[in-house]
Structures are given as structure tokens and as C-alpha cells.
């Protein structure tokens, strides 16, 4: 019998998810479209809102990256930032391939990796602590791929990272939070869609 070929890795650092998201909020341009879903949506709604924020609640789980792809193709002069969870990413891994294949230079996909389905009670996602999201993105064809576990490093890098031509993939190792409620819809989705489309035209 052969021995496992994996080697121990250094302890990973994790940043508070709310602070990681606040760094995105501070770095985004008002012309940017920002799509949030699941836990990032809940935390994003605690921050000052912009007309081009699209809170994807309710969602079809896994839908934020392909929705962002569509918006990026339709609005090539705007940056589109998608804030996704790792459980949601696992729901639709093929979207990584679809995005890389379409090559939208204006799309930034940020995955907040905490290893749990936080909104349903913090059950572990499949492959928690094992799945290498940046490697998945590279294998799918992303060329701009980044990973951060340090809040200070992410805060220092975020403006530069989202400014480079993409598609760009960022994995953020964030702390688990237990006992928090899931995101609540900020209002009727149809009306919000209509307002969002008006804001894009305006």
C-alpha cells in the first residue's frame, strides 16, 4: 500500500467576512454593478446601498455567477462584481467554465469561503477545507486568479485586483459565523429588477 502523497499545509488564516465585504464596498465605483447572494447579501445590506446593487434574494442557489456573466456581456463598459458563497459556487461549478469561455473582461467573481452552508445552520459544504477554489478557477480557464486569507492584505489589494482586465476570480478565506439568520429579501424582486434596469438606463 502506498502512502498518501499530500503534505501538510501551513495553517490557513481567515478574515471576518463582513470586513472583507466592506473592503469591496469601499473599492467599488458607483458605476459598478454588484451582485450579492446568500451570506454576502445579508452582510452587504448592512452597508450603504447603491442603485446598481442587485441583491439576489430570493435566488436560485448557484445563480449569481451566471447572472453576472449575462450582465457583464450586456454591459461591457461597466464592471460587474459578483459576491458569492462557497456553497453557492459548488452548486454551479460549471459556471466557472462558462465564464472563462465567454471571457468577459469586466467580470470579477469573489467567493467567500467559510466551508459551511451558513444560512441553513452552518452545516459543512462538501469538500470543506479540501477544495482548492483558485485551482478550480485556473483549471476552468481563468487567468486572473487571486486568494487572500489576511484582511489587511485583501484591503490593500482589492482596488488593484478588481481593476485588472478579467474575468477575475478571487477566493477569500473568511471566518465561520454561527447562529446568524439568513438574508431577508429587501423587497419584491420584480420591483427591484425594474428599478435596477431603470438605474442602468439612467
Amino acid at each position: 500500500m502506498t502512502s498518501p502523497t499530500t503534505t501538510p499545509t501551513a495553517p490557513r488564516t481567515h478574515m471576518p467576512a463582513k470586513d472583507a465585504l466592506a473592503a469591496v464596498h469601499a473599492a467599488r465605483d458607483p458605476r459598478d454593478i454588484v451582485i450579492t447572494t446568500m451570506t454576502p447579501a445579508r452582510d452587504w445590506m448592512l452597508l450603504p446601498q447603491q442603485p446598481l446593487d442587485l441583491v439576489l434574494v430570493p435566488s436560485a442557489m448557484g445563480s449569481a455567477p451566471p447572472l453576472g456573466l449575462g450582465l457583464a456581456l450586456a454591459q461591457p463598459t461597466r464592471r460587474v462584481i459578483v459576491c458569492n458563497g462557497d456553497g453557492s459556487m459548488l452548486m454551479n461549478l460549471g459556471a466557472l467554465v462558462s465564464i472563462a469561455n465567454a471571457r468577459p473582461a469586466n467580470l470579477v467573481l469573489i467567493v467567500f469561503v467559510n466551508g459551511t452552508y451558513e444560512v441553513t445552520g452552518s452545516q459543512p459544504v462538501p469538500g470543506a477545507g479540501v477544495v482548492d477554489y483558485p485551482a478550480l478557477a485556473r483549471a476552468a480557464g481563468f487567468e486572473s486568479v487571486h486568494a487572500y486569507g489576511s484582511l489587511h492584505e485583501w484591503q490593500s489589494a482589492v482596488r488593484r485586483i478588481i481593476a485588472v482586465p478579467g474575468p477575475t476570480f478571487v477566493a477569500l478565506d473568511v471566518e465561520q459565523v454561527h447562529g446568524q439568520p439568513g438574508p431577508k429579501s429587501p423587497g419584491p424582486a420584480r420591483e427591484r429588477a425594474r428599478q435596477f434596469m431603470q438605474a442602468l438606463r439612467g
Binding site: L54, A60, S63, P66, L67, G68, L69, G70, L71, A72, L73, A74, Q75, N92, G94, A95, V97, S98, N101, A102, A193, F196, M197, L200, R201
Partner: peptide, 20 residues
């Protein structure tokens, strides 16, 4: 626009429609 599964096709189309 080629996608990997059909549910994803509706989601990409939704983003396109929202984007005009």
C-alpha cells in the same frame, strides 16, 4: 454563449435581459 447546463442558460439570459 455556450454554457455547461441548461439551468445556467436561463440565469445567463436573465443577466442579459436585466442588462438591456
Amino acid at each position: 454563449v455556450r454554457v455547461c447546463r441548461e439551468g445556467e442558460a436561463w440565469q445567463v439570459a436573465a443577466g442579459l435581459q436585466l442588462g438591456g
